[in-house]
């Protein structure tokens, strides 16, 4: 009985959200008339979305929203951040309360299809990683045979760990804890040899250890966690706006256009840069923006590399290496289709 009722409720909610999505097929027009972008952000994750001492939101996911706002309004401050928990993020997007969800959301098939969402690219390739003590002398996960590994209970992390060690025929011992804090404490007190969670989280957790320099993050990434901005199904123009905002930042990095030199680059004879910055062609108008949309993004937020280094890379305390997030020209996975 209870289940039937719940199913009816879900069905009702889904049908309403679908009709809502159809009615709002012009999210861009709505954002423009409202004068501010509603962006679903996380509730606080170092490097991705976090209020600073003045209360301003910073992070790589936050910069994604600021870039979209810059492209539309020429003002990166025209964003209202609505902090959403992992539970209610998709409901808020479906109900139209946020125009864009940029909150370390993993792109999975079920989310992309049955939840009625569209992923507009991948702005961070994350995956599960391992941290060990330096003095253990281990430089690869494959050398962790027989090790005890601290992890959080009931997460996909635990399952990935089991899969990976079984696939590689390694023995290991899992020590699982209910909360992340407990897990880190246990690892630090020497209860286990290694600690595993998403790689981006490992760097943040390392800083809370009493001697961060004594610990290293191993190079292997054992799972795929592609994180990216999400929009509703059914508004292709809006999907294009968000998708190409991300691509513009990638293309800018590839072409060497930065926040500092973007004004000089306006005079560049390179046709690719000309098309990017809107001095040639009408590419911005095709997605309902002005032709200098990419110029605005780079001027206010910077290219992808700048956003990365500032928030999670060498310019931040996390000091995460580019790794898979390097451009395809530098051995990474970040690849943007050309603007032409």
């Amino acid at each position: 009985m209870k289940k039937i009722f719940a199913a009816a409720l879900v069905a009702a909610a889904t049908s309403m959200s679908v009709s809502g999505a159809l009615a709002q097929s012009a999210t861009l027009a709505q954002v423009k008339s409202r004068g501010i972008l509603h962006c679903g952000s996380g509730t606080g994750l170092a490097g991705f979305g976090l209020p600073d001492a003045q209360g301003n939101w910073t992070g790589i996911d936050v910069d994604m929203c600021r870039a979209v706002a810059a492209a539309i309004f020429n003002d990166p401050a025209k964003v209202k951040f609505i902090p959403l928990s992992a539970k209610d993020r998709f409901t808020s997007l479906q109900s139209g309360e946020v125009d864009l969800l940029s909150r370390t959301t993993t792109w999975t098939m079920s989310r992309d299809t049955s939840l009625g969402l569209n992923f507009a690219g991948i702005n961070y390739y994350d995956g599960q990683g391992f941290m060990v003590r330096k003095k253990l002398g281990v430089d690869s996960v494959l050398k962790l045979a027989g090790a005890s590994i601290c992890t959080q209970q009931g997460t996909t992390t635990e399952l990935n760990l089991a899969d990976y060690f079984r696939a590689n025929n390694l023995k290991y011992e899992v020590v699982a804890f209910a909360s992340n804090t407990e897990t880190v404490k246990a690892y630090e007190s020497g209860r286990c040899d290694a600690f595993t969670t998403d790689a981006s989280g490992l760097y943040a957790e390392r800083l809370t250890l009493s001697a961060p320099a004594d610990h290293i993050v191993l190079p292997e990434i054992i799972s795929k966690e592609p994180l990216g901005p999400v929009v509703r199904h059914g508004d292709d123009v809006w999907l294009d706006v968000v998708k190409w905002t991300h691509f513009a930042m990638l293309n800018a990095e590839e072409l060497g256009v930065t926040k500092a030199n973007v004004d000089e680059m306006m005079k560049s004879p390179n046709p690719e840069i000309k098309r990017l910055l809107g001095t040639e062609g009408k590419y911005g108008e095709a997605i309902g923006l002005t032709n200098d949309w990419a110029y605005r993004i780079i001027k206010h937020v910077g290219n992808y590399g700048e956003a990365f280094e500032r928030n999670v890379g060498q310019g931040s305390l996390l000091k995460i290496a580019r790794g898979q997030n390097a451009l395809w020209t530098k051995g990474g996975l970040q690849y943007a289709p050309p603007i032409r």
Binding site: G44, A46, L50, P51, L84, L209
Partner: peptide, 23 residues
């Protein structure tokens, strides 16, 4: 839980900030 930053939430938000991440 509905995403409003009350006093306790502001403290929790700063706890994950690497600027002050210490044991």
């Amino acid at each position: 839980i509905v995403g409003i930053f009350d006093f306790l939430r502001t403290i929790e938000a700063t706890l994950v900030d690497p600027t002050w991440a210490t044991p």
